[in-house]
Design a protein around this nucleic acid. Structure first.
Length: 922
DNA sequence: GGTCTGGAAATAGGC
DNA sequence: CAGCCTATTTCCAGA
């Protein structure tokens, strides 16, 4: 972010601004500072928290001055900006929408911001891109990179130090797991930057950013025709138009193969892709900005928007973010600092880093002011977990978005608003409060196994047009673009989200950002996050949040991957020969149906193509002959089959059961025996093991990528597994972290009562999630053979049907804690230690979930794949399944279980180990 | 004329 | 290093 500032000022085009901003301190010094600060969790360290900073102030800083070059090439020497130097916040600068609450922070933060000068050389030709501000687009990103990445390439060394420090502190080999991409959309960082620096006025309550010159003179008309008024507009200095011809991809693109953060070294030379692009599309409109958020939130929200552009990752590790929170106005925030310290101090506490929440950040506290849920000033960071319900107030997503929405690139026109599966649009509603209009914040979050946070590669964008009936404003919070939508009493505090599109930022742009650890490749799933601030006692605001089901945003994934809807039968004799009818989408003529079985080590033990019987494969149905199993067995054998449209275009593997000659005697608890498997492994601990109980799916059984299979993580990946050590957070921490998960994996498709909407306390969420994901009752295990039936597979992305999972609020004591109690109850009764052999019996009982085996070998092993190979989808699926299995087999508060879960997560992320996982590549 | 969409070519990286 | 494959990004055209 700091970098961004440096980059350009509105007027600058190439100016020698660096000087101005050039910090007196050397890079080393800065680095040192950063390190120390980070380690110390200096509050001011992370600009990230910029949320709390005042835009106005920032803006002033730069606006009139030399403009730092926005897009300096590698050659550009970006000296670190002295923390203080660049911006001495003039009086005016600190505007304060937020007021004192953030005051303390600002000062401290300032310096920091400047520390990072990101001019990531790479990207764009300075000439071409005078302003980082280009719209949100990836191009803009360059700037973003800087901004969010915060560390300029210049600071590579420093980066290294930081990393080391981070590792040290975090104990994460990977660069901090924490390092979440958090920036959320770095691109926005640019915008923010622009707003702040180029158009300080924009932040002025009175002025709309958009009032500033909208069109960049340089903008090429040709560029996107569609540009609506966008952020770009406000940037004067937009990058010149980029070549009309198809821009080449950025050379500096990060290699996906190297997931290792350390490995990355953005070469300064990476050529900046000539995509100067102005982004045509910003959707933000002028008007939007001007106003302040509706209702009382206005100021509040505004303050939040001023957040600095800093990668959330950075924030997390530093804890400075937390520090910000500790603003005077917000007692509830104080805890953050504490936690941050702890984080920094606890090397092993990776989890802590993520999970740590201020000690007093008690979700259970009903008293406003006593809980972080209540804030008097700025909105909580976007990566903070928030409950969807508190007391009587509940934020619910009554209509979920479609599981697939092709995001558009900057270079494209809008692809419209996210739609609901039913054809309409998602509907969000705030229950329990209707006294006055409130503002709803919407942003694009991640859909991976980690905690919910702004997605680095996708940003929400405002869709305008005749069909849009919902008012909304596009704003920026940190690096994340946010839509602010009013929820009006006259509309029953509900809103149809027909104004939210999804913009895809180029992977290269984002990945080059310093500090960015996420990879964009195959990271194409998102969740729509909704937040609302409900005016509460004493003028405080109660923040609630709910998220949508995962939404696949890539064209390919949405169109090429076969998606199975149902198949029948789900089992047959080991002799095979029966016809298997599979229905779904994206089933092409050349589709193959492959049966396979994997061993404990993930290796494919057996694989065979099923002969296609249908004369002509259609896009919706295929009939194949079930191949005979490769060996005799006296027990049901769970295998998998998938539909493949090509090497990497496989459907999610489905469980299929080969039955022994004698039917009707399926041992419920019996494990599937594999000749080479160790007896022990036959238990659930064996990778790829499919729970016997699930072997024979009943007709009621619901299979889905998320629900249908349960790959018990713990089972497959014993704690002993050699993988990156993941710190096992204390129960509370875990809960916190997982708070997000619930939403991630458990997504109720149609029921308002979805998990995410279920009132939960942070840490109850976890439990709830697990429970919901794999409700025992959802899986009907058949102890007795069930006649072949059609197995229905819910759409991917949809998660466990909430119906099957019930967290009953009624069971709760009511009040703030009711959700908690409810959750606790369900969770408690549901968890079983999967890893615990003794639990096997439980698993084998009816109600078990199916286990799915590893994907076919195609599935690259993690080691070879590198992170990129692990698709979020995969992760999500696995996680979901794992969680599901945990829910069915683990005790809620058993750290061990959770630990395993987390460990697993990390393993996948970092891993060198080739871990087989469920869920086909998606 | 602008917005949406679907489709596909061009590109880039990995194997 | 060439070729193939997959994923990403950009462009085109039609509704």
């Amino acid at each position: 972010m700091l970098a961004d500032r440096n980059w350009k000022t509105p007027t600058q085009s190439a100016g020698p601004d660096l000087d101005v901003k050039a910090p007196p301190s050397s890079t080393q010094t800065l680095a040192g500072q950063l390190l120390s600060q980070e380690l110390q969790s200096h509050p001011s360290y992370f600009p990230t928290t910029g949320n709390y900073q005042h835009v106005g102030s920032e803006g002033n800083q730069y606006n009139t001055k030399g403009n730092p070059r926005a897009f300096d090439c590698p050659s550009i020497q970006i000296t670190s900006i002295a923390p203080n130097n660049h911006v001495e916040p003039s009086d005016n600068q600190v505007v304060s929408a937020v007021g004192e609450a953030e005051g303390g922070y600002l000062e401290a933060s300032w310096p920091r911001d400047q520390l990072y000068l990101p001019l990531d050389p790479c990207y764009r030709d300075p000439a071409l891109c005078p302003s980082p501000c280009s719209s949100l687009s990836s191009r803009s990103w360059m700037s973003d990179l800087s901004s969010c990445g915060s560390i300029s390439h210049v600071y590579d060394d420093m980066d290294g130090e930081l990393r080391d420090a981070a590792c040290l502190a975090l104990g994460s080999p990977l660069g901090s797991p924490l390092g979440s991409p958090g920036c959320g959309g770095g691109a926005f960082g640019v915008e923010l930057w622009q707003q702040k620096y180029q158009h300080p006025s924009a932040f002025s309550p009175a002025l709309s950013p958009y009032q500033s010159p909208r069109q960049s003179p340089r903008q090429s008309p040709s560029h996107s025709p569609r540009t609506s008024v966008t952020e770009e507009s406000w940037l004067n200095c937009r990058p010149t138009s980029r070549p009309s011809s198809r821009p080449t991809s950025p050379c500096g693109k990060r290699r996906h193969s190297s997931a290792d953060p350390y490995a990355r070294s953005p070469s300064p030379h990476h050529s900046p892709s000539p995509t100067p692009g102005t982004s045509p599309r910003g959707s933000v409109t002028d008007d939007t900005w001007v106003g302040s958020p509706a209702g009382a939130l206005g100021p509040l929200l505004m303050s939040g928007f001023q957040e600095l552009d800093v990668p959330s990752k950075t924030r997390r590790t530093s804890g400075s973010q937390l520090g910000l929170l500790t603003g005077r106005g917000d007692p509830g925030l104080e805890p953050c600092q504490d936690s941050s310290r702890e984080e920094g101090q606890d090397k092993d506490g990776l989890a802590v880093l993520f999970l740590q929440v201020p000690s007093h950040f008690s979700w259970n506290k009903p008293k406003p002011g006593a809980s972080p849920l209540f804030r008097t000033s700025s909105p909580p960071p976007l990566d903070w977990p928030l409950p969807n319900q508190y007391d009587q107030c509940e934020l619910t997503l009554e209509v979920q978005p479609r599981s697939y929405h092709r995001a558009h690139y900057e270079t494209e026109g809008s692809r419209g608003s996210i739609k609901a599966a039913t054809g309409g649009y998602p509907v969000i509603k705030l229950n329990g409060y209707s006294e006055q209009p409130v503002s709803l914040l919407l942003f694009i979050g991640t859909a991976d196994d980690r905690y919910l946070r702004p997605h680095s590669f996708y940003q929400v964008h405002r869709v305008t047009g005749k069909t849009v009936t919902t008012m909304c404003q596009e704003k920026v919070m940190g690096c994340t673009k946010v839509l602010e939508i009013p929820l009006l009493p006259e509309n029953n505090m509900a809103a149809s989200i027909d104004c939210a599109g999804i913009l895809k930022l180029r992977n290269a742009d984002i990945e080059l950002k310093k500090g960015e650890t996420d990879i964009g490749r195959k990271n194409t799933r998102v969740r729509v996050v909704f937040r609302v601030a409900v005016p509460h006692l004493d003028g405080q605001m109660l923040w609630l949040q709910t998220v949508s089901i995962p939404v696949e945003c890539s064209q390919r994934s949405g169109q090429d991957l076969p998606q199975l809807e149902s198949f029948s039968p789900s089992s047959c004799s080991v002799d095979g020969g029966q016809e298997l009818v599979i229905t779904g989408s994206n089933i092409a003529a050349q589709s193959r149906v492959v049966f396979m079985e994997k061993g404990p080590d993930g290796r494919t033990l057996w694989e065979m193509d099923a002969r296609v019987l249908s004369e002509k494969s259609s896009v919706t149905r295929i009939v194949v002959e079930i191949p005979p199993y490769n060996k005799k067995t006296t027990c049901p054998v769970q295998v998998q089959f998938y539909v493949s449209n090509g090497k990497r275009r496989r459907s999610v593997p489905q469980c299929f059961t080969y039955l022994p000659e004698v039917r009707g005697h399926l041992p419920v608890a019996a494990g599937v025996k594999q000749e080479h498997w160790e007896p022990d492994l036959i238990s659930h601990n064996a990778p790829g093991f499919c729970s016997p109980s699930s072997d024979t799916p009943s007709h009621d059984q619901v299979l889905s990528s998320d629900v249908a299979y349960s790959c018990d993580l713990p089972l497959r990946y014993p704690a002993s597994h050699n993988a990156p050590r993941l710190y096992h957070p204390p129960p509370s921490s875990v809960s916190f972290q997982t708070l997000m998960f619930p939403q991630t994996s458990s997504i109720p498709l149609q029921s308002p009562s979805m998990l995410s909407q279920t009132p939960l306390s942070p840490h109850q969420s976890l439990i709830a999630l697990n429970t919901s994901i794999k409700p025992p009752q959802t899986f009907i295990s058949s102890q007795t053979p069930v006649p072949p039936q059609i197995t229905t597979i819910p759409p991917q992305g949809s998660s466990v049907p909430l119906q099957s999972f019930t967290i009953s609020p009624n069971t709760s004591s009511g009040g703030p804690c009711r959700g908690q109690s409810a959750v606790s109850q369900s969770s408690t009764s549901t968890f079983i230690t999967a890893a615990d052999p003794q639990k096997d019996s439980v698993l084998s009982s009816p109600g078990q979930t199916l286990s799915i085996k590893q994907e076919p070998e195609d599935q690259p092993n993690l080691g070879s794949l590198g992170l990129q190979e692990i698709t979020l989808d995969d992760v999500n699926e696995i996680i979901d399944r794992d969680i599901g299995s945990l829910s069915s087999s683990a005790q809620p508060d058993q750290p061990d279980q959770l630990d395993q879960y987390h460990q697993y997560d990390w393993e996948r992320k970092s891993s060198d180990a080739a871990l087989p996982f469920c869920g086909g590549p998606q």
